[in-house]
Amino acid sequence: MQFLIERFPLYLDGAWVTVQITLGGSALAFVLAMAFGILGTIKHWLPRAVATVYVEVFRGIAAMVLIFWMAYVLPDLTGYRLDRTFAAILAVGLNVGAYGAEVVRAAINAVPKTQVEATVALNLSWFQRMRLVVLPQAWAQMLPTFGNLVIELMKATAVVYLIGVVDLTAIARQVRDATGETVIAYMGALLIYFLIAQVLIFGMRLLERRANRKLGRTPPGGTGLGALLRHPVVPGAGGGVSG
């Protein structure tokens, strides 16, 4: 324990980089997921094809391959050398965005058809329909899966040390190389990753509750602070399987 406490500031620096990449990557993934997810729900074949290509390509390539490609191949092909942290954010964002796009598409398609018919009857434009009726309902549906994706993304950032970014894993490596204590050095990193994950999960649950409240629904698991900390009730546990 003493070993880790002495090196805590070092770990904190690494954790901060990990958090930055996680938040940056999540922001990018969110924008991409929304854009391509909505494209995937449009009737015309062209936007749908674009969305499918994006999703299949970036889901199919491992995030790590993508990170390597951004760091080593892209400079060769284009002559531009991306900042390593930025390359990392881009790679994880593109990868997780592809998963998110599927979630967004499914959530929008799951909004009851009568809701859409009502907007047609009210003569709302496509933008009004999306913004006022469809997305707020789909949003509540997407959030639980987004929560899982944010954790996935955070875990995926562990590979960025391979292209020279000094994140939490890189710090664990440095400590290992300096002291030879692999087990303790990596245990420290694992614990901090776990803590970051718990904070992210807590934050996503807050968002979820807000989304449900705005729709006038009781958040799953009940109200009150206790419900936030408890393990969430799986929506549709009566038979629906998601994941």
Partner: peptide
Amino acid sequence: VHGVMEFIRTTPLLVQAVFVFAL
């Protein structure tokens, strides 16, 4: 068991692999 699995699920595979390999 659930707590242990939750820990495994929310920490990176890469770090776990190095940790176990050293263990």
